[in-house]
Design a protein around this nucleic acid. Structure first.
Lengths: 194, 194
DNA sequence: AGGGATTGCGCAATAG
DNA sequence: CCTATTGCGCAATCCC
């Protein structure tokens, strides 16, 4: 079950599983980047990081309830061999030439030239990157869960410790009050015995 | 920041975000299923649940290091229009008629009949289910992170409380020992004053 | 500019 | 039969 050993190991791994920044591009699997983040960074990493990209549904997505047939967007099978349908944000007219240069629409972009060797190479590299990234995400999620369970366990132990200390404290207080009473009695009346 | 209010709300939501079992199939977004799991269930939900399916790479996947060009499996673009390449587990001869009925191989399976209305309908339904499932997963992950942070915060507070109690206890013990000495002195020698 | 890293999406296989 | 999960490839985007 891999419990015990207190917080140390799990927390350590969990913390180091969060990306501090980008890293090298070599295919070295043992990516031991010594990154470190604050709690805020960790939270925001999967909360506010929607990437203000050109997907009109992301905000709604993160707010929940994004399923339901929001937009068909994939019933026109007019695509040529290979390359499945993909949302091209049909809810957009022709404002591209009028947008700010930063938001420039994708103007043909140098004819992607499908099924070329260069394309396949890029695709394959991206596929590898995707697998790597998802694997990392999976590990991160698992570590977060383990961390949560470990923290919960620690919490229980701490609560019990607090209970013990409180009880001990009450006992001592009681004893002290008794002593106090005894001392008062001794002070008021003379010693009863001895 | 939504902190404060102790553990209650976050934990509650986190616990209820884990699937206890399947639920209804209605498209009702407000899925308030009253499921509840033990910690073991939660952990195993994303740890050992690899689904012993027919993907020869899953174990390796979960052990880490699954990227790297493990298998091309997608360089033969001989597929007809629509339907991108997809691993069809080529490492299989022709044992289908000899396998147990339960393990029967996918024998043509009634000609899937692409681009049929029924196919599109199934695809669309599955797409909705996928969006829903992923949305749920995202929420679950976020809740787990928030829960971890909340627990960490709680832990710090508990540690501080323990520190206070310990100090108070030490103080009382010291006082008691003083009283004890005082009492011993009073017992040994007569009252010094009064 | 260019390349890895992320991420939403659809597909298919599979679990339930 | 259905929906729910999940691995995967693609494309857009992010981010150095």
């Amino acid at each position: 079950m891999m419990s015990d050993s207190r917080v140390s190991s799990v927390i350590q791994e969990w913390v180091s599983s969060y990306p501090g920044q980008g890293q090298g591009q070599t295919l070295n699997p043992s990516n031991q980047s010594t990154n470190q983040m604050s709690q805020m960074d960790m939270l925001s990493y999967s909360q506010g990081m929607i990437r203000g990209g050109a997907d009109d549904r992301v905000a709604e997505q993160m707010m929940g309830l994004s399923y339901l047939p929001y937009t068909p967007s994939c019933l026109t099978n007019t695509s040529s061999p290979s390359s499945t349908n993909h949302h091209q944000s049909s809810t957009q007219q022709d404002f591209s030439p009028f947008l700010l240069p930063t938001l420039r629409a994708p103007v043909t972009k140098r004819s992607i030239s499908k099924d070329s060797a260069e394309y396949r190479q890029r695709r394959e590299r991206n596929n590898i990157a995707v697998r790597k990234s998802r694997d990392k995400a999976r590990r991160r999620i698992m570590l977060t869960q383990q961390r949560a369970l470990q923290l919960q366990e620690d919490n229980q132990k701490l609560q019990m410790r607090i209970g013990q200390l409180t009880q001990e404290l009450d006992t001592l207080k009681h004893i002290l009050s008794q002593r106090h009473l005894q001392g008062a009695e001794e002070g008021a009346a003379g010693e009863s015995s001895i």
